[in-house]
């Protein structure tokens, strides 16, 4: 493999790795959509649901961050 292809392969690999962020986006969108529906139906339950909202947000955001980190590692190391 010619050595000048390696930087290009780095960039392509980092670009492919970032596709994983899509999953996190879908997850967070779903989460807040479900939260709005739930609060719309039962506004009194808002306080109880909110704890799980932020827990779910952090958990699904973390999966997106994993992909972002892999992309960064490929790009910068």
């Amino acid at each position: 493999m010619p050595s000048d292809l390696i930087p290009a392969a780095h960039l392509i690999g980092a670009g492919l790795a970032i596709i994983g962020v899509v999953g996190g986006g879908v997850g967070i969108g779903n989460l807040f959509g479900a939260f709005i529906t739930a609060v719309g139906r039962n506004p009194a339950a808002r306080q109880d649901i909110q704890i799980y909202l932020w827990l779910g947000f952090a958990l699904s955001e973390a999966t997106a961050i994993f992909a972002l980190l892999v992309s960064f590692i490929i790009l910068f190391t």
Binding site: L59, E61, A62, I65, F66, L68, L69, F72
Partner: peptide, 9 residues
Amino acid sequence: VRLFANITA
């Protein structure tokens, strides 16, 4: 990894 990756990213 969740904590470390979030802060690093």
